[in-house]
Simulated assay, not measured.
Amino acid sequence: MTETNPDEMTFEQAMAELEQVVAQLERGDVALDESISLYERGAKLRKRCDAKLKEAEEKVAAITLDAEGTPKGTKPVEGL
């Protein structure tokens, strides 16, 4: 089975797989070598989730509101 590159996953996909990895590690019924591989995979998935959350936060922060509180446009966010 080939694993999807976390950089190509949506936030939801990465989070779902991360939850599976954590559940496997918490059960404690996997061999040490497999545990290490799972931990490494989990670290990559967590990094992807963090990046996608930061990206979403920056987009939300860039939305400007008018006096009535409705969006009137967005400001470009550096680095996106």
Rank of each mutant, 00 (worst) to 15 (best):
R46I: 03
E57T: 09
Y39T: 05
I63W: 10
K52Q: 11
D66N: 09
G69D: 08
K47H: 10
E55F: 05
E57F: 15
T64A: 14
V60D: 11
A61Y: 07
K52F: 08
D50R: 13
E68G: 07
K54E: 05
L53K: 03
R46S: 11
L38N: 01
A51Y: 05
R41D: 01
D50Q: 10
K44W: 00
T70E: 06
K59H: 06
Y39R: 10
E57D: 10
A51H: 05
I63R: 11
G69M: 01
L38M: 04
A43C: 06
V60Q: 06
A43G: 02
C49M: 03
C49Q: 09
G42S: 03
C49K: 07
T64D: 07
E57G: 12
L65Y: 12
A67T: 07
G69C: 07
R41H: 06
K47N: 05
R48A: 02
E55A: 12
T64G: 07
A61K: 14
D66M: 03
A61Q: 12
D66W: 01
E55S: 15
K59L: 13
L65M: 15
A51T: 02
Y39M: 11
K47I: 00
A61H: 14
V60T: 04
L45Q: 00
A56N: 03
E68N: 15
R41V: 00
R41E: 00
K52S: 07
V60G: 12
A67Y: 06
I63D: 07
G42V: 04
L53E: 05
K52L: 14
T70Q: 12
D66P: 02
I63F: 04
K54L: 04
K47Y: 10
A67W: 09
K44E: 00
E57P: 03
L53V: 09
R41A: 04
L38F: 01
K44D: 00
T70D: 09
L45Y: 03
E55R: 09
A61E: 10
V60A: 12
I63T: 07
V60K: 08
I63C: 05
K44G: 03
T64Q: 10
Y39A: 10
Y39W: 05
A43W: 01
I63S: 06
K54P: 07
K52M: 11
R41M: 02
T70A: 14
A56K: 04
A51G: 10
K44F: 04
E58W: 13
A56Q: 01
A56M: 15
R48K: 10
T64E: 15
